[in-house]
């Protein structure tokens, strides 16, 4: 069987693209390719990663312009066909702007750019992105953002909760979801959400920066390994490749 191939989209202003590439290629040992924002093919990838950064300078709103890149048409089509898509930080903002995930990311309640390690609690194990995690398992990884304050209207929020689409919440190290553990003011400490179909996931923390002990945490690798396993266990024809 061919190795699982990850595609990392590079927008003008992406700055976590190489971290994501390193994470999947050199830590996971999977195949990885960069996809330029003007490309019109996903080159047969199994998973698309929208990395962190400041695509298009964050002009207008974070992710608002990246959404109209030629590559995003393909990413939307891939996602609608059931392909795995993961958005990290700015990538999460782009997924919200493009309508692949509900809600939006507002300015941090503190008005400050927050760059530090946080703890996130696994709210739902067993999904494509959390299949190697246990329910309630706490992961440690960094956040680095100015607009990570997850917001959606009350009825959408109720739907997300009812359908188990909240995969991670900011918590203390021992798994308490408290206001003090919330770095940005997100509704209900939400750190990451998945679409209803279970193939598109976005989060503000940076799992690709938590892949090796030497940089402080290996917890992010659990998320990447989960999706890698999800691809290998899925029927080969589940997603049509170009």
């Amino acid at each position: 069987m061919a190795p699982v191939r990850f595609g990392i989209v590079v927008f003008p202003g992406s700055n976590c693209d190489h971290d994501a590439y390193y994470a999947v290629k050199h830590v996971l040992g999977a195949d990885a390719v960069f996809l330029w924002h003007r490309d019109t093919t996903l080159r047969g990838v199994d998973v698309v990663i929208l990395p962190g950064g400041f695509s298009y300078g964050d002009y207008l709103r974070c992710g608002a312009i990246a959404r109209f890149s030629p590559i995003m048409k393909e990413v939307v089509r891939f996602a609608k066909a059931g392909g795995f898509v993961m958005g990290i930080c700015n990538g999460f903002q782009i997924l919200c702007e493009s309508g692949l995930l509900p809600g939006s990311l507002l300015r941090n309640a503190s008005l400050r750019f927050v760059c530090r390690m946080v703890h996130i609690r696994t709210e739902r194990a067993g999904t494509a992105f959390t299949r190697l995690l246990a329910q309630g398992q706490v992961l440690t990884m960094p956040v680095a953002h100015g607009e990570g304050n997850y917001y959606t209207d009350a009825s959408t929020l109720a739907g997300l909760e009812a359908k188990g689409q909240v995969l991670f919440r900011y918590s203390t190290l021992d798994g308490q979801v408290t206001p003090g553990a919330n770095p940005n003011g997100s509704l209900r400490n939400i750190a990451g959400v998945m679409n209803e179909e279970g193939n598109v996931f976005g989060l503000m923390p940076h799992p690709e920066r938590a892949m090796e002990h030497i940089i402080g945490s290996v917890d992010g690798a659990m998320i990447f390994r989960s999706v890698l396993e999800a691809v290998t266990q899925r029927a080969p024809s589940a997603v049509s490749k170009e």
Binding site: L60, R61, A64, F68, C96, E97, G103, S104, L106, Y151, T152, D153
Partner: peptide, 8 residues
């Protein structure tokens, strides 16, 4: 379509 985000 672009200038405003209907969510917020």
């Amino acid at each position: 379509k672009l200038l405003a985000n209907p969510v917020m």
